[in-house]
Amino acid sequence: MKVEADTAKCCGSGMCVLTDPAVFDQSEDDGTVVVLVPEPSEDHHAAAREAAALCPAGAITVHE
């Protein structure tokens, strides 16, 4: 799995960080998404998918 984020789309809602803070963070500059672990371990796959689904801006993409 590979996780990507489009910071230009991100609205800074923080749903990704709330879903999996081990994989996602927010920039201190503008609050946009930061992918901490672009290729998370299998135990984070479900949460990464959930974060992508919950993102109101559609800024997170998960490639299986």
Rank of each mutant, 00 (worst) to 15 (best):
E50T: 12
A53K: 02
D29V: 14
L36A: 03
E42S: 09
P40V: 09
P40S: 03
P38W: 09
D25R: 08
T32V: 15
H45N: 06
T7K: 11
L36K: 10
A51R: 04
H63V: 14
V17W: 08
Q26C: 06
Q26Y: 05
H63N: 11
L18Y: 07
E42C: 05
D20Y: 06
D20E: 15
G31C: 10
K9A: 01
T32C: 12
K9M: 01
V33Y: 00
E4S: 04
D6T: 00
C11I: 15
A53Q: 12
L54F: 12
S13I: 06
Q26E: 14
A8S: 14
P21Q: 05
A8K: 01
D30H: 04
C55L: 13
Q26H: 08
T19C: 13
E50Y: 05
S13Y: 11
D29G: 03
L18R: 06
E42W: 08
V34W: 11
A57K: 04
G58Q: 11
E28H: 04
A59G: 07
T19Q: 12
V37T: 13
D25V: 11
G12V: 10
C11G: 05
A53G: 07
D6Y: 00
E39F: 07
A59P: 15
C11Y: 00
L54T: 06
A48P: 15
A48R: 07
V34A: 01
F24N: 05
A52G: 03
P38G: 02
D43G: 04
P56N: 02
D20W: 02
V23Q: 00
K9Y: 00
A59C: 14
S41T: 12
D6R: 01
A51V: 13
L54P: 12
A52C: 12
A57S: 15
V17Y: 09
V37Y: 04
A57C: 11
L36C: 07
G58R: 06
G12C: 08
L54W: 13
E39T: 14
A8Y: 00
A48C: 15
T61M: 02
R49C: 10
A52R: 04
E42V: 14
A22E: 15
A47I: 09
V35C: 01
Q26I: 09
T19V: 14
P21F: 01
E4N: 05
A59S: 14
D30N: 14
C55E: 07
A52I: 10
E64I: 09
A46M: 04
P56V: 06
C11A: 05
F24H: 00
I60G: 02
E50N: 10
P38C: 03
M15I: 11
A51K: 03
Q26F: 08
L36W: 01
A52H: 07
G31L: 05
D30R: 03
P21D: 13
E64F: 08
G12M: 00
A46E: 15
V3F: 00
Q26V: 13
L54Y: 08
D20N: 13
S27I: 12
V23C: 07
H45S: 08
E50R: 13
R49T: 06
T32L: 04
E64D: 15
G14Q: 00
V23D: 04
D6M: 00
T19A: 08
A22V: 13
T19K: 08
E28R: 09
H44M: 14
G14V: 02
V35A: 00
P40N: 06
V35W: 01
S41E: 15
P38A: 03
I60Y: 04
